[in-house]
Design a protein around this nucleic acid. Structure first.
Lengths: 239, 239
DNA sequence: CGGACAATTGAAGCCGGTCAAAACTGGTGG
DNA sequence: CCACCAGTTTTGACCGGCTTCAATTGTCCG
């Protein structure tokens, strides 16, 4: 089911983290935080770097990715409005195992390590919220892994388009298809394939009337058949 | 670096969960727990199932995997002695997103949901230990995803053999190569390829003197070159 | 000794990665 | 306003790795 690939729960992330806190704690976080504008392409942090705090995406979108020795990069998550970023390394006490960069101009709030850990230490409900969120995240990653291992590139393209359709949906959605604005390179790195391959598959989808491509923007026109392409069987029709 | 693919920290899992607790809490967990012997192939839980508690691997090994509509299965983790199992779904409050089954005869302790959550609720240090563990887990999964997306099957076979070599290392290791006992099917599902493909690559490794295969057991003879096969560059030699 | 299952080998064919080049886009300066 | 350039997107062609199907060999147990 498509639901398993989406992180609806995460849209509430800011509410979760701030909602659970006392006004004192809230105050402490806000006081020590800094909000900054990142331009498209700017890097928030890099793998092997030392974590200094956590990030909060106020607006825009940030890709989480990992680069390999040969230079290719794999995007494994796209952070949208109100999502938290970079807390894994902080919690595990290790270096960053991944990198993060803005894929469009984004407003990001930075909360220093000390403030965050202090508040976390005092607030059991924040810890619980994080545990819950990470438990859910686990489910998403398992899906990614399974898909990469078992699905064809074509299926993965379809699936990622469906996921992005949700991620690019405006707050007040009127039901019209989202405008997915992501470079071919980024999209390919998300799917885990070569640009050329991705482009060809997009062409096929376009010819089949599944999507429309205007410049750098993709819209899904035929959700139903896109789900079939992605080979995600809904529960009722699975048996 | 190979280190990033291993879960050394997890070997301490039992110590972590029990070590952080007061004797009262410890008592509560033990009192309500049940230890049971699972035969090779026995399933602990299945995806879409309702979580009833967490599992503790006392001895033996348990595969965590996910099945696809078409029947193939992807193994994304192998749980060994002293590792915890099945807490993600419990924490996120969702159904299981994966399955777990014993790959050899295993002693497993089951701790009911209520007891675990109650203790978790009272013990901030347990919550912290879990946060830390999950933060580290995140790093492992990112590696899996990146590898699946960017490495060739041959490289993945080499890498998985190295990982398994660690996992099958006895408590008192004397430096001799571990005996990796895992069916070809399981190994293939771990790597994310077809059995036939795996077998052929194993043959090549054997001919190259990298491994020895006696029956159902594989031993790595040449670590150094296996690391080269896996294309994991050590930090010093990367530049 | 035989039957079931696991492991291996062989062969065919396609998916997808790679290299190369053309078409298109947006931005810049004359 | 147009011409030019750099970067992105698209198309074409090739080939090798992997999957798949099929059949054989090997191994464990009753």
């Amino acid at each position: 089911m498509l639901r398993n690939f989406l992180s609806e729960n995460f849209r509430l992330k800011t509410d979760q983290i701030f909602g659970e806190l006392t006004s004192d704690e809230h105050e402490l976080l806000l006081k020590s935080s800094v909000t900054h504008l990142y331009k498209k392409g700017d890097v928030l942090f890099r793998e092997e770097g030392i974590p200094a705090g956590i990030y909060l995406v106020r607006s825009g979108r940030v890709k989480k990715y990992k680069t390999t020795g040969s230079g290719t990069e794999k995007i494994f998550y796209l952070c949208c409005e109100d999502e938290l970023l970079g807390y894994h390394a902080l919690l595990s006490g290790e270096f960053y195992s991944d990198s993060a960069a803005a894929v469009e101009d984004s407003e990001i709030t930075f909360i220093p390590k000390e403030a965050f850990l202090k508040v976390l230490n005092d607030s059991a409900s924040l810890a619980n919220a994080l545990l819950k969120a990470m438990g859910h995240e686990f489910c998403l990653f398992i899906n990614s892994i399974t898909n990469l291992a078992t699905k064809s590139v074509r299926e993965r393209v379809a699936l990622n388009l469906l996921i992005l359709d949700e991620k690019f949906k405006p707050r007040e959605s009127n039901g019209s298809p989202s405008a997915i604005t992501l470079s071919r390179a980024d999209l390919a790195n998300m799917v885990g394939t070569a640009k050329e391959n991705l482009v060809r598959i997009l062409q096929e989808f376009k010819k089949a009337g599944l999507i429309e491509k205007s410049d750098k923007c993709i819209r899904i026109l035929d959700h139903k058949n896109m789900i079939i392409e992605a080979d995600i069987l809904e529960f009722s029709s699975r048996r």
